[in-house]
């Protein structure tokens, strides 16, 4: 008997240790990851904060290698490109998500579409850039905002489609049945009841997609190209903040290097503040409807 109880104690101690070890390892993993992220942020702030001032935000770039000047065309260009990408990506992505969740069921076609979407989420973004380069840039013989926005929009489609399908599936079946039971046709149930119930999730998916494309560089090199001046037309080359960072970081001048860090800092905070604001605004509306 004493043997048995001793064995029990040993295994209990071992299990306790194993538990603690498990928690400890996940804690360490978290610390390492957060540490890496915060040191990137800290480094960015340290290197870039000096470049940021009012002129940096509202001016055009100065002449090559000279001090001063700003990245206003890149900021404006980024907003325009993201806007175009949303016009392309949101309706198509949400449409695909609704189709897969509400209409398609488990047909072979739908499952094929799901596989394709999951694949495209992982496809390197330069592929979309090459695609748009060959179907739009080359035929029209010009880089343009439209081409850049289109490439970013195509990148958004699978991301938004996937998140939309996922959050729509979380809406309880009972809401759909209740809507159908009062004689609402399926499309009205989808748009009046299911989509509003999943609104916060759909918006979060949209934010994720926007945040993702706002930081894209590769596809833009092949489509938007970049520009030193304010955009004057959607059918001409346009600048974007990551293109500006790329140009300045690779350049030979210290001023440029500092401005590259400054631009990177603005991009990081822009995405952070943007997603925070959208998240807060959707949370408020959810709280109200409760």
């Amino acid at each position: 008997m004493p043997m048995a109880s001793k064995r029990k104690t040993v295994s209990y101690t071992w299990r306790k240790w194993r538990g603690a070890l498990g928690f400890g390892l996940t804690g360490v993993a978290t610390l390492i990851s957060l540490g890496a992220l915060f040191s990137i942020l800290g480094y960015l702030i340290h290197q870039g904060i000096g470049a940021i001032n009012w002129n940096f935000i509202v001016r055009e770039p100065a002449a090559v290698g000279e001090a001063g000047g700003g990245i206003a065309p890149s900021l404006l260009g980024t907003l325009i490109l993201v806007a175009i990408s949303m016009v392309v990506g949101m309706p198509l992505g949400i449409g695909v998500g609704i189709y897969l969740s509400e209409m398609a069921g488990d047909t072979r076609f739908a499952n094929l579409a799901r596989v394709a979407i999951n694949t495209f989420i992982g496809v390197p973004s330069i592929i979309m850039g090459i695609f748009v380069y060959f179907i739009l840039v080359k035929p029209t013989n010009t880089f343009s905002a439209v081409a850049g926005g289109l490439a970013l929009g195509i990148i958004m489609i699978p991301i938004i489609a996937r998140t939309t399908e996922d959050v729509l599936r979380l809406v309880p079946k009972s809401i759909r049945e209740a809507g159908l039971a009062i004689g609402a046709p399926k499309w009205r149930v989808t748009f009046d009841l299911v989509l509003p119930a999943a609104r916060a999730g759909v918006i979060t998916g949209g934010i994720l997609a926007v945040a993702r494309v706002a930081g894209e560089t590769a596809p833009l090199i092949l489509t938007a190209l970049g520009n030193e001046y304010y955009p004057t037309s959607l059918f001409k080359p346009i600048d974007e903040i990551t293109l500006r960072i790329l140009k300045y970081a690779r350049g030979p001048y210290d001023v440029w290097h500092q401005q590259a860090y400054g631009a990177a800092l603005i991009l990081v905070f822009g995405v952070a503040i943007g997603s925070l604001l959208l998240r807060l605004s959707t949370r408020d509306r959810d709280a109200l409807s409760r």
Partner: peptide, 26 residues
């Protein structure tokens, strides 16, 4: 058909809308 045959479920299923809108929707 479903407008002439109403249904009430086991668990109450209010729409994610106001009290007024729940009735007005139908």
């Amino acid at each position: 058909l479903r407008r002439s045959v109403g249904m009430v479920f086991q668990r109450s299923t209010p729409f994610p809308k106001s009290i007024f809108e729940n009735i007005a929707y139908g």
